[in-house]
């Protein structure tokens, strides 16, 4: 392995990491917003919107991000909808992530026993008060492991961004391999940079999960 070459590649990888992180976290944020909006629609059973939301969730959960990005980036401009690669990346991540988050939030809500709502209401709480003070806090707590798994999944999924010509880590590695044929060096750097990006999230996730389990069962 040629360490000098690797060192000379570092700035390129660093820039790619920042780009990936920026789009990744914006996408995650968007996913949380979409997921929250969708789960509220589903919870309140708003007609029409409820059906549309269900359709959206199934469609995006059952198709690959790569295909979704191709549709957003190559197909939509043909009917006059043009977006920058970066915006497409965020939106794509937000859309697929929103579908997954909706499912996670929904099962979080379902995990709160019905009798919790009943005992809140039997204390005279309105449905809104019961949702705010009794149901939601418990639903969020039990959704946390799922949310973290989704975050890791979404950050991993950013690896397809190179197909819509975003200069992310994959793009950089592929580009450098193509130009200088230093395959091993490029791949080692690629792995290291993905570890830098994902290991902290994964570790933080396990710690948080253990803490939550502790809070739930108290041992």
């Amino acid at each position: 392995m040629d360490l000098a070459v690797m060192q000379s590649y570092l700035p390129l990888y660093r820039d790619a990491l920042f780009l990936t992180l920026r789009i990744g976290w914006q996408g995650v944020f968007l996913a949380l917003v979409f997921g929250l909006v969708c789960v509220i629609i589903l919870h309140l059973k708003i007609p029409v919107l409820k059906t549309l939301t269900g359709f959206y969730v199934e469609l995006f959960r059952n198709t690959p991000l790569l295909v979704q990005l191709f549709f957003l980036y190559f197909a939509l401009p043909r009917i006059g909808i043009r977006m920058t690669p970066e915006f497409t990346g965020c939106l794509g991540l937000g859309l697929i992530g929103g579908a997954y988050m909706t499912e996670t939030f929904r099962s979080g809500l379902e995990s709160v026993p019905k009798i919790q709502e009943e005992s809140a209401q039997s204390l005279g709480m309105t449905p809104l008060l019961a949702f705010r003070h009794v149901i939601l806090p418990q639903a969020v707590a039990s959704s946390v492991p799922g949310i973290l798994a989704n975050v890791i999944f979404l950050l991993k999924e950013t690896s397809v961004f190179s197909t819509i010509s975003l200069m992310d880590l994959m793009f950089t590695a592929k580009d450098l391999i193509g130009m200088y044929a230093k395959t091993i060096e490029c791949l080692v750097l690629l792995v290291i940079f993905y570890l830098i990006m994902l290991l902290p999230v994964s570790v933080a996730g396990s710690v948080l999960e253990r803490r939550l389990r502790h809070a739930e069962f108290g041992d």
Binding site: I152, T158, M170, Y194, S202
Partner: peptide
Amino acid sequence: VRIMPQMV
């Protein structure tokens, strides 16, 4: 497997 993208 958990944290490496399949693409990598």
